[in-house]
Design a binder for these strands. Sequence first.
DNA 1: AAAGATGCCAACCGCAGAGAG
DNA 2: ACTCTCTGCGGTTGGCATCTT
Length: 318
Amino acid sequence: MGRAPCCDKASVKKGPWSPEEDAKLKSYIEQNGTGGNWIALPQKIGLKRCGKSCRLRWLNYLRPNIKHGGFSEEEDRIILSLYISIGSRWSIIAAQLPGRTDNDIKNYWNTRLKKKLFGKQSRKDQRQQQQQFMHQTAANDGMKQEEATGDPNRSSGVPAVNYNWHHQAIAGPVPPVPGMMMEGHRIGDEVDESIRKLLYKLGGPIPLATLPVPHCVPPMHEGSPSLMPPSCMVETASFNEGGVQGSSTLPALELDQSFHFNQVKLDGLDCFFGMGTDQSIRWSEVSPLVCPNNTVASSSQGMQQYCLVDEPANLGMK
DNA sequence: AAAGATGCCAACCGCAGAGAG
DNA sequence: ACTCTCTGCGGTTGGCATCTT
C-alpha cells in the first residue's frame, strides 16, 4: 500500500509561481507565520498549491534575506570543505552560509562548482575569465608596453592558453584565495574555525590545527591507469560515536576503504578515488581550491602531492 | 538566421525521521 | 508499541536562456 499523497494532485496548481501567488503567500506568512501546518496553509489563503510547494517557495525564494547567485570564493571553499567532510547534506552546508538555501547550493554544486573544481569550466565562466584576463592584459599592457612577449596571441588579445579557471593560479595574478598566506595569516582561517566547530559537532574531523597536512599520492599515475583508490598515509584522528578519541595514524587501506564507503555521497569527487571514467585527470589542472599546492606543484613529476583543502575527508558520515 | 546543444535554476517527487495521538 | 501525519531533505526533471555551429 502506497503512501497517502500530501494533497489532491488533481486540484493543485503546479509549475512556476505567479507574482500574485507569491504576494499572497508572503504577506500571509509575514503576518501570521506558517501556523505550524504547511498542508493547511494554502487552503487558508486560497492558494491552489500543495503545502509542500508553498513551503519550498517560502524557504527558497520568498523568505527575507535570501541571496541568489554570485557565490564568492569564500563560499566556494566552505561548500567544498563541508562537501568533502559530510557529503551532500545541503541543509547543513546551507546553514553555514547565511542567506543561501540548500536548493541553491545544491544547484550551484551540480551545475558549476563541480565543473569549476575539476577544470570543466562552463562557457559563461570561461567568458567571464576571458574578459577578466583581457582586462588585466590591457592594464598590464598599459603599464609596460615595452615588454615584448613574442607571443602571437598576445597582440590579438587572445589568451595563449585555454584560459580555464584553474589556470588563473598559474598564469595570472592570483586573487586572494582562502587558505593562502597573506600578511602573516591564512585567509579564511575564521571560516575554517567555524567549519571545524561544525564538523566537531557532527562527529567529523578534528580541528585542522591539530592535523598535519596529509601527504597523499594521487590516484592516477601518468600513463598507467589504475583503479586503485588514493594510497595515502595520513595522520588523522579516529572517531567513535562520542567524538574524538585522539590522534592516530590510519593505515592507507583503512582510509581507502573509507573513501569507498563515502563514495556515493562524494559524487563528483570520484576522481579522487581513481574511479572516475576519465583516466587522464591532470592533477595540475585540478582547482587550487581542492589542491592549493597546485599553485606551485610541478605536474611533470607524474606524482605530486595533493591535499583536500588541508583536511582529510571525514569518511564515516551518513 | 536558424537549429541544435548546453547550461542553469525553479520546482517537483518520494523517502525518511520526528512527533503526536 | 504502534500508526498516522507532517516536515525536511536530497535527487531529479522540465523548461527557459544562452551559446555554438
